[in-house]
Every structure is written in C-alpha cells, then in structure tokens.
Amino acid sequence: MSMSRLAWHDLPADTRAAVHEHTGPFLTSADVTTGANSGVAVKAYTSAGPVFIKGIPTDHRQVKTQRREADVNPYLPPSAPKLLWHTQGGGWDLLGFELIDGSIADYTPGSPDLPLVVAALTELADTPCPDIPLLDLADRYASYTSTPELFGGEALLHTDVAPHNVLVDSTAHLIDWAWPTRGPAWADPAVWVVRLIEAGHTPEQAEQWAAKVPGFRTAHPHVLAAFADANAHQWEEVRALEPRSLWKQRMTASAAAWRDHQRALALRTDA
C-alpha cells in the first residue's frame, strides 16, 4: 500500500533541522511525486552538492524498509546511488542519497532504455550477495505456491524493477532498495518480464529481453512456470486490496498473460 506524501516544507521543523545538519541550507529544492514507498521525497541542491532525500515516519510499519536500504547500500553495484547519511528527527527516519538526475525508464517496445536496463540487471547479477540479513525469495512467495523451494538461491535481488525504480541517464540506475532479497539469479529478469508485458510487449518479446540477462537463461522451464504462476497469484492479491486501481489491474493482467504463456510452454515441453 502506498503512503501519503508530504511536501518538504510540511515536515516538522525538527525533521528539517536534522537533515540540514548533514546538508547545510538548501539553495533550491523540488519535491518528488513518483514512487509509493516514502512519506517524503525531495531533490535538494546545496552548497555541498545535490542530494536525494526520502523519509518515512518512525511509527509507520514501513519504516523498516529505510533500515534495509541503509544496510544493503554499501554492497550494491557501482551504478546504484550511494547512501550519504541516515538520520532521524521530529518523528521521521530519513535517508540522503547521491542524486541521480535521470528520467524514469521507458519499457515500451523499441525504447533505447531497454539495453541499459539489461546492463544494470547484468551488473547486479555479477555483484556478490553480502553476508547480511536479507529477505528470502522463497519465504516471500511461500503463500503463493506449493513449491517455494524452487525459488531458493544465493544472488542479490532487487525484486521491484518498476519503471520508477530505474532512473536512466547514460546508464540505468536501480534505486529504491526497500526489498533487498536473497534468491536465484533468474528472479529479477523474471520480475522484469511482467513489467515489459505491462509496457506493451508480448510475453515472447518480454522473455527475449529477459534472456539477455545471463541469470534468466539458467532457469529450468518448470521453475519459470512455477514462478510465473506464483507471481500471478501475488498480483491477484495486490489487486484485491484496491480493486479499482487501474495500474494494479494492468499488472494483474500482465502477470496472468505471462503465467498463461508459461503454462502453454510447459504443456508443449511435456507433450
């Protein structure tokens, strides 16, 4: 569920003061409206340089995602924005990141961003999984499948490659590491498949792009079919919470399209 978003100047004075201890006074700033997992998000330009700030109230159940982002950041690939500081003040938990002033990724067919996203996912696949507490993909999908053991692995995963979580300049940058997860290397490109379908690709075209990421090519067909089915169940649950949400309807339909494609492939393989 998304949370209400406040503008920077609507935050308590103590919260803004805690940030200014790290940044100094803002020269200019701009509130960010994209994304769904922060209570405040702002681009700030200071005499010390630009910074992206995101925050969540300390009494919000999602505040744990701030700690996850802080803990995993030192282990992320070079293209991911670096965490500059982590602070609390006025009832808010706040992270300050290197500012990536790029555009939201375009996943539509023919987009020049697609090869850049392949490169970012490949870079992530080549990044060692740190020996720190992370979420586990098999655990996260256990309620959506009878075979969660198929989703085990030792790769570092992002798991939420929505377009607004990928900023593009000359490179694609994976941002918003609220759900860092340990699992199989094929999982992030598999999650990307559904996003590509939602952007207008056929399931076959989406899988062709995902297959450019080496990890996806290592997945056994029956494992992909099981994951596509579990992913469809997950999106059905997400949509049920907000049945009138158009983007959740589209994502549910896209996940179902991939599941049906994978089922058809499995039937042909077994025949």
Rank of each mutant, 00 (worst) to 15 (best):
R263F: 04
Q262K: 13
V238R: 11
N231E: 15
M251W: 08
A256G: 12
L267P: 11
D229G: 11
K248M: 15
W247M: 01
R259Q: 15
L246I: 13
R259D: 11
L265T: 09
A266G: 15
E237G: 06
Q234E: 15
E236H: 13
R263Y: 04
D229T: 00
A230M: 11
E242C: 05
L241F: 12
A266Q: 06
A257H: 04
L241W: 10
A253I: 02
L241A: 10
W258T: 04
R239A: 14
L267N: 09
S254H: 02
E237R: 10
L246M: 13
Q262G: 05
A255N: 05
A230I: 02
A228S: 06
W258K: 06
A255W: 03
L267I: 10
W235K: 10
S254N: 01
D260N: 02
V238T: 11
N231S: 10
K248W: 13
A232I: 06
A225C: 12
A230H: 05
S254D: 04
A230W: 06
A226I: 03
W235G: 04
K248E: 14
T252C: 08
Q249S: 02
A232H: 10
A226Q: 01
S254C: 00
D229S: 15
A264N: 06
L265H: 09
A253H: 09
P243G: 02
A266P: 12
E237H: 08
A225R: 02
L265V: 09
S254F: 01
E242P: 08
D260S: 06
D229V: 06
M251K: 04
W258I: 06
E236M: 14
T252Q: 12
A255E: 04
A226F: 02
Q262D: 08
R239G: 11
A253S: 07
A253D: 13
L267S: 11
A226K: 00
N231L: 15
S245E: 11
M251E: 08
A264S: 00
H233K: 10
H233N: 14
A226T: 01
F227Q: 02
A232L: 08
W258H: 07
A253M: 03
Q249H: 00
M251R: 06
A253Y: 00
L241D: 13
R250C: 07
